[in-house]
Computed example of a mutant assay.
Amino acid sequence: MISEQLVGLAMAGVRARALGLTGHQNRVFGLITLFALLTAASTSGAQSIEGFQLGDDKITLQRLGVPSETKADGAFTTLTYHGSDGIDLKATYQRPSNRLVALQATWPKGGAGPSTGYGALTFGKTSLSEIRSQMGSKGILYASQSPVVASSGGAISILSYFDVSGTDAVATFVTSIDSDEAAKLKATFGADAYKNAPPAAKLRTIGVSRREYLENSQGTKRTLDIGYRAITWSSQEITSKHPAISLARIKPGQLPVFRTYSGPNNFPDFTGRDKEFTNFRTRITDGMSGGPAFAGEYSVIQIGCGTGCSFAYVGNNRTGQVFNVPVGGEDNMYLSLKYQLDSRLLVAQWADYDASKCYLQFFGFDDGEWTDLLKREVGPMDDCFKTIAENAH
C-alpha cells in the first residue's frame, strides 16, 4: 500500500552447489533468500505488513524514502513513514542484525480506508465484533497491558492480540471509537458501555511482532480467552493494489560505502582461508591486480564456464579474502554484472534457460554477506542481450 510493493523472494531455484556456498556462508545465504520463511527464526508462513515481512533486512525500507521519525530504544530502532495512500507505517529493527522485528500499519483518518491486506479486514470499516467473529475469540490478554486505552480527549482504543500459528509472531489489531461515539455509548449503556463497544470500534491499526520483542514491553504473563486459537497468516493472504517498484528507482547511492581502500593490493591465502578457490587462483589474482572497483575495497572477478555460462567472485583488496557472488553457473545464464566503487549495490542480469526468461536481480553486500533485495522478470530470454541500463527502466 505504501509506495510500491517489494518483489523478490529470489534465488529459490539456485542450487547451493552451483553457488559454491559452504558452511556458514551457505546458512547465511539461505536465511537471506528465504525472507518469506522468517529468516532467523524457525517459523513458517509469511507475516507481511504493507509489503514488508518480519525478518527482512532494514535496507528494504529504503524504497519508502526518508523516515518522518526515527526513535532508538536500546537495541531497537523504530522508523516511521507516511504513505501517499494515507497509511502510516512503523517498522522496528534490531541491531546489529538489522532485521525487522515489528511492523505496524495505521489508518489515522476518519471513515473507511483501504484494505489491510489481511483477509477481508478494512481500515476504518471492520468492527471489533467482526474481528472477534473471524478469529473465534477475544484473543490474548497481557497482564501488564490494559486492553482498553482511553485518550485525554475521550477516544477509546481496544487492543487485541493473537499468536500467528506455526511462528514466533504475534498479531495486533487495534480498534478505536472516537470521543463522540464513546460519549454516546456511555450515555446509553452507562457502566456497560465497554461491553457494547465492539460493534462501534473500528479497525485503525494492524501489526505483527516477534513475540520476544513484544513481550519486552508487555511482559510474558498472559491469559487466553475461552475458545482461543492461533490465527493463520500466509503470503497468499497478502495482496497489494500498488504497482511493483520501478527498477530505475534503485540507485547505487542508496547503499553508499563508508570508506574506500587505496592501499596496496593484498591477495588471497590459497593455502589456508581461501583454499576453496585454489582452482581459479590465477584468474582471481589477475582480477584483483587492478585494485578495488566495488563496495569500497573489492574487485569483481567473472569467470567463464562454457557458452553463455559464467560465475563470479569478489575479492577484498584490503584483506585478500574471497567471496562468492550469489548468482552464476547454469542456473543464471548470460550473466552480466553492474557495480561501482562507491556503492554496496550489485546488479545482476541473467537468463533462466528452462523458462526462457530474463531477470534483473539486486543485491546489497555488507562485510562479506549478501542481501537479496529484489528480483524482477524483465522479459523473454532475448532481453538478456540488452544492457542492464536498457532493461532497468
Rank of each mutant, 00 (worst) to 15 (best):
K109Y: 13
I245M: 15
R376K: 10
F294V: 12
A295V: 05
A348Q: 04
K125P: 01
S289I: 08
C358N: 05
L159H: 13
L103K: 09
L214G: 02
G315W: 07
R259H: 06
P326H: 07
G139D: 06
G8C: 08
A230K: 08
K275M: 13
P326Q: 07
P264W: 05
P380N: 12
G308Q: 06
F162G: 05
S299C: 05
V28L: 12
A187N: 14
A12R: 12
A230I: 03
R281N: 15
Q340W: 03
F294R: 14
N324A: 01
T285V: 14
S137F: 04
Q5G: 07
V378E: 03
A348F: 13
N216G: 10
D352F: 06
T43Y: 03
G287C: 09
L141D: 13
G253T: 15
Y339V: 05
C309N: 13
S129C: 02
A120Y: 02
G113D: 11
L19C: 09
S160G: 00
D331A: 14
L103R: 12
I140L: 15
Y261R: 00
G328D: 08
T260N: 00
D354T: 14
S336G: 11
G113Y: 09
P243L: 13
G154F: 05
G320M: 02
N332L: 03
F311N: 05
